[in-house]
Design a protein around this nucleic acid. Sequence first.
DNA 1: AATGAATGAGCATTCATTCAT
DNA 2: GATGAATGAATGCTCATTCAT
Lengths: 212, 212, 212, 212
Amino acid sequence: MSARREATRQKLFEAAITLISEHGFGATTVDQIAERAGVAKGTVYYNFAGKAELFTALLEWGVDRLAEHLRAAVSGPPRAALTEVLRAELAFIGTHEAFARLLMAETWRTNQVWYAAVRQIRSKAIGVISGLLEELAAEGELPAGLDVGVAASALFGMVLTVALDWRTLQPDRPLEEVHTTVARMVEGMLRADDRSGETNGGPSLTPRRTPR
Amino acid sequence: MSARREATRQKLFEAAITLISEHGFGATTVDQIAERAGVAKGTVYYNFAGKAELFTALLEWGVDRLAEHLRAAVSGPPRAALTEVLRAELAFIGTHEAFARLLMAETWRTNQVWYAAVRQIRSKAIGVISGLLEELAAEGELPAGLDVGVAASALFGMVLTVALDWRTLQPDRPLEEVHTTVARMVEGMLRADDRSGETNGGPSLTPRRTPR
Amino acid sequence: MSARREATRQKLFEAAITLISEHGFGATTVDQIAERAGVAKGTVYYNFAGKAELFTALLEWGVDRLAEHLRAAVSGPPRAALTEVLRAELAFIGTHEAFARLLMAETWRTNQVWYAAVRQIRSKAIGVISGLLEELAAEGELPAGLDVGVAASALFGMVLTVALDWRTLQPDRPLEEVHTTVARMVEGMLRADDRSGETNGGPSLTPRRTPR
Amino acid sequence: MSARREATRQKLFEAAITLISEHGFGATTVDQIAERAGVAKGTVYYNFAGKAELFTALLEWGVDRLAEHLRAAVSGPPRAALTEVLRAELAFIGTHEAFARLLMAETWRTNQVWYAAVRQIRSKAIGVISGLLEELAAEGELPAGLDVGVAASALFGMVLTVALDWRTLQPDRPLEEVHTTVARMVEGMLRADDRSGETNGGPSLTPRRTPR
DNA sequence: AATGAATGAGCATTCATTCAT
DNA sequence: GATGAATGAATGCTCATTCAT
């Protein structure tokens, strides 16, 4: 892979990610991508097998960056780490709004060629959260009856929704304000075990795992 | 509006909602909609101004049903009502999976003709949740620093995400199992005020409103 | 099938047959076909599944006409009938030169989608000739050792080649002059049995059939 | 012309002849030719002016070999030589089936750049046959009224057709079986003069020449 | 009220050719 | 001599929309 080719692929990535997240996969044309990247249309096909493959490569690229970003936020005790990871997710979306819209819009499509790819890719990011929840579960800090897999996806989706609403409706609001609400909600969930014995239904104190 | 015409519109609705949620708005053709509805292509245009208008009508129809479904679940004290509303959302998505995918996929698109419509429509459903949160806030049952608007969108998005993951990855799992996790997470949040005074940062005890 | 649609298909046929036979299948564009037929490009696709299908339908249409033309020439004793059928083939090609070029050019392609169609279609025309040869064989008028299937294809190909050379190199020459040569060649073949016993190699006097 | 370059051209020839005869000129891409030849795409253009020129060179190369093959079969009295030449044509096609298909498919195209080249090239091969027919005509062994030029093209086309049908439909059949039928047909034609005086139309005993 | 044939702008994709290395 | 990245005109095909019936 020559350096020139690599540079071209990078330009195409950046052009495609913006356009697709703004107009969606279907409404973005290869002409637009090529023009924005400053190359000829044929160059798109010289570098990627097709529009769909460019899209898949793009998703992978984006989720890798997101996962990396989340992993970098993990430090210290799991409780604090979780709050930080969610802040990192919020921050990432603030910076890469275009990609987040793309992820939201295309993840829930069925019957698509790239369906499998999207699911697998998404789980990379959620994996960081569920890893922390596993640790908290091991320390008995999760409420009884909580399924770690479900909870991880719940937190991921919650933050994604909040973040996009933030960017869409109140883009000028500082991140911290938004994060406070998220943090409060999560704290409540985590501290639930402090009160276990009060009302929690009996002895099933161990969190449940997502069945396979 | 004749009964015959109304029946035709209904057939078109049902055909469109399934197809669009499976393949997306862009990838669904008017031909497919007409064929699935068992009418000629021209009939679509006799009954709707165009594909986009059919889509808008469809969203409205679906969100009205969702909001209605959620409102019907509101009863008793707000705390219990909130749990029930979220269960209702979960159940609605279980039954109208196609519509939920559609809502998720198209809500986050910018620069679309129906962007305004989608936002307005979506707020109908979220409104039911934020209504309950307002009541809880008035009773002092929400953690300090919690923004009701953000929290409502967070809960709505959380349940939507969980529900679609459930339908996609573990469709045979009973609703109750999934709901348990959601309920535990929300309970923690609500009970947070039981512990207020412990660690809450300072005097800002009243929940904040989402600024307009 | 409405009358209007049928008329459109006919216009497309006539446009396509001329263009394809002049420039070949690959070099003829759908734009050209539509323009020559005086319809919009989309109309081609409304009436045929695609370019290849239009081509297949075209071949079938042409070979049906050719076979019909050849059958119409069959009358009287088989010996005379054969001469007349070959004259009819020559005449048909004189009139439908474009189609004949098409048949020649595309019959011998392997690995094509329409390969099977072409073979089957071509055998319709050859069938008329082999039918006559069967009759002649039954009357003992064919030379020993002659395979009827091979001979029919030989005569068909011989006349096709001669006819196209005629149209290409000496288009002003009258048909009769060309037919004379063909007729002389065939007469020789048929009269071979007059001399059987002279030099024919042994007892295998019955013509052979093409093995399956 | 360096040895290396000559080797590259040879590789390109072999790759092109197979691909073009299998898929046709139009459907064969320069990429495919380069890949099959094991060289880079640019190398094709370094060695040939373009795709069309490669094709012309290819045809010439093939027809030269065919003509050479036919000439080598000429020996002894013209009557026997003719049978042998036709056997040689059959054998050549059995061995170079790909090239024969190519010749058949492209000879009959009008309006092509290489039209003139193809005709001229083809006449080399037919020339061997018409040469023998001229000799036979001089010895009075051809039927009256036979045009030598037409007859040569007829025999060439007849054998080409038979040969390709043989390779396509009954590739396992031995060459001799196919050749027997061809030989019988030609024998009949040649011996026709043995019977002249019987029914041949009057005094026009001298074969005619193809007018120019 | 419904139909379906026709339309044509728009799109993804292909591919012969060029050229800097 | 050879390479392969880049090009862009050309092409098959799609599909929302129109309209005469």
